[in-house]
Design a protein around this nucleic acid. Structure first.
Ligand code: MN
Ligand code: MN
Ligand code: ZN
Ligand code: ZN
Lengths: 128, 128
DNA sequence: TTTATTAATGCAACTTAGTTGCAATTAATT
DNA sequence: AATTAATTGCAACTAAGTTGCATTAATAAA
């Protein structure tokens, strides 16, 4: 892992992800950033932030990727909380409190987890 | 949902998925099928089988999609078991017995789930 | 069995997402 | 200020998935 530099793109992308109430996609970021940087740069900054464990990656059941801020990942970078994707408003949110319980057979070595539940979020289930 | 027809492509793809010990990707299927049908047909057959609830879709944390056979989905098509993706041999398997326990705040309406854990499978964790 | 209906397919073209190589830029160190 | 190497922009590229449309073929009706 080489020395990470504090560039405008990196700072801005990290801020956007940290301040967003929900997980952001590459497209979301590109829309917010306008021409602050090239789209390739966004991919590369995201990769860097992932390596640095400042953000984590979320895939919904259709393979759509979003990114959310990490909170206490310096010690263990195990994102064992549930992500909720709303089929109405398309938002993806971290439910940091909801950590599923389960037991794998011995011999399985766990490195990472991706739990995503889809349906209607509180906002959208109310409207009906 | 229109009437589904028993075509060669459909039959063969469903057999492949049912008989595979692990979840298969579009690329896996295309490799096995050779020129039995066009790659677009594979996409369309997969969509049909999903609609008919004969297979389910799995996305790992990187968004890679695979498909596995359903077992008792006529009543409830809720795939709340864990999928394990091995980072060594790349296999994706359904752990049909492992159903995580968790409790979402009220107001969340759940339609589907995608639980994927990555690491080393029993075969590959033994080798080290 | 023959005919009619329409689901399913193949093909080409297209869109979307992500990757790579390389020269130019710039943050951080000395 | 000069040095170093991380970062960026750009263009070209690969990979994955979608769409329109003419053709084929599974199924049902006659
Ligand atoms: Mn999260
Ligand atoms: Mn499964
Ligand atoms: Zn919503
Ligand atoms: Zn393995």
């Amino acid at each position: 892992m080489s020395n990470s530099r504090n560039t405008i793109a990196r700072t801005e992308i990290l801020n956007l992800i940290r301040e967003a109430g929900e997980a952001l996609s590459h497209a979301d970021l590109q829309a917010s950033l306008g021409d602050l940087c090239n789209r390739v740069t966004i991919y590369r900054v995201l990769d860097r932030l992932l390596e640095e464990r400042l953000i984590h990656k979320i895939a919904d059941v259709d393979g759509n990727i979003t990114y959310a801020a990490c909170h206490d990942c310096s010690s263990r970078h195990l994102h064992n909380h549930i992500h909720f994707r709303c089929e109405a408003c398309q938002s993806v949110t971290c439910l940091n409190r909801v950590e599923p319980e389960f037991k794998l057979p011995r011999q399985y070595v766990v490195h990472s987890m991706n739990f995503t539940v889809s349906g209607l979020c509180p906002k959208c289930s109310g409207k009906r």
